[in-house]
Design a protein around this nucleic acid. Structure first.
Lengths: 227, 227
DNA sequence: CCAAAAGTGTTGGCTGTACACCCATGT
DNA sequence: ACATGGGTGTACAGCCAACACTTTTGG
């Protein structure tokens, strides 16, 4: 424990600059469709970056919290609510004006999402692995959401938000495979899902594919749970 | 795939409220000293919550990023830089004015931290498990930092920032125990640390305690790495 | 000589992974 | 009949947790 000399004094209040900024929210909305993980993008109709694709987002309303704004944006674009939504990261350098953007990510069931029908700012789903160039630094944000999702998949039930209430284990496995980008062993997958208590069988059977009827399962919890 | 009717239209720009807010940074600075995990608190000299303890923080300077502001605050309070620092969470409801606060957390080596010497706003270390009431919702923020730290401890090398460059395995174990709040088995701990390649022996020995000299180790990387 | 910390291996249980075949249904 | 997806068990390997004693040094 060296006894060093006293150092820097506290900064004076006089040196403060502009402590107010414009604040916005960004939402990375992900779904799984046709075996691929997809992200919702909109085409910008305003400058800057007019006609570029970008993540949905916008300024906060008066007195609105970030979470409320994220929920509002999600609802505006997809019509769904009550899905998995989590804060991702906060950026203060996405543009050159030092505006503040809080990114969220959300997982939606493609069957329940109805994209907003607008002529401008039209939203569309793109494969995460193969999407167009994005405005600002939105590509980083998508990448961040993807890595967060992949790591959560292992030890949580986030996938509940990507599927209908009842589903077959094959559908669930397909969802996992689309997110992880690799094939999984069927027997090991089923063993783990049931032994960890993530899902439980309903009584019912359903014929999802056009072949043999299959046992339907549901998530034990339809809100975020970690294991 | 039900064909539902078109829904909500895009929100008009006219309904936007104040999209500018005051923005601040909060830093949860943690250390391990005398076998306990401790957090740095300052006593507020200004309203609101005058004389209450709170986390260090403050408004952003002109054009400053959140990360830069967090580093600046950390340096003001402890005199250290180049430590582990990570964004934690962003709040828009800590006070009633809807101001935005981005919380960071940092890990510092108590031997290198020299607290700022001020008569007002004096900083002090408190055990995380037993600290005074805090202003605003700072207690939540500390709790969040703690859980993040605990989960990172397992699969990363964050502890590098809590120890000097060279240390004994017993010191390292003590650090882990302080953070996790429970005793660890010495043999298992050593096995894991070395087998995972987190630390490596230096040639040297040191006599940290007042007894038998011990092998000194160092972290292979002194920046964040995950395993 | 006593107190305090350093150092060192083995075992059992659990978990994750690899791997192949038959069955029911619809076309 | 055949194509498609549903459903099932075992064996091996690696990882983690439990567990106790000897050595060295300083006081």
């Amino acid at each position: 424990m060296p006894a060093r000399s006293p150092h820097r004094s506290s900064r004076s209040a006089a040196s403060r600059g502009n402590a107010t900024r414009t604040v916005a929210v960004l939402v990375v909305i992900l779904t799984v469709d046709e075996g691929r993980l997809r992200v919702l993008l909109i085409r910008r109709s305003a400058e800057p970056h007019r006609d570029d694709w970008s993540l949905p987002g916008g300024l906060l309303l008066h007195d609105e919290t970030f979470e409320a704004a994220a929920i509002r944006k999600l609802e505006e674009e997809t019509g769904v609510a009550e899905v998995f939504l989590e804060q991702l990261y906060t950026f203060s350098d996405l543009d050159e004006q030092g505006s503040v953007a809080v990114a969220y990510f959300a997982l939606v069931d493609i069957r329940q999402a109805l994209l907003a029908e607008r002529s401008d700012w039209l939203p569309a789903w793109f494969p995460v692995a193969d999407h167009p160039e994005l405005a600002f630094k939105n590509k980083q944000v998508v990448g961040y959401a993807l890595s967060r999702l992949r790591s959560k998949l292992d030890y949580s039930n986030v996938a509940y938000s990507l599927l209908p209430e009842e589903f077959t284990l094959s559908q669930l496995q397909g969802t996992y495979e689309a997110i992880l980008g690799r094939a999984l062993d069927k027997r090991n997958f089923r063993k783990r899902m049931t032994s960890v208590g993530l899902v439980e069988p309903t009584g019912r059977q359903g014929s999802v594919a056009r072949h043999r009827p299959a046992q339907l399962y549901r998530f034990r919890e339809r809100k975020p749970v970690v294991f």
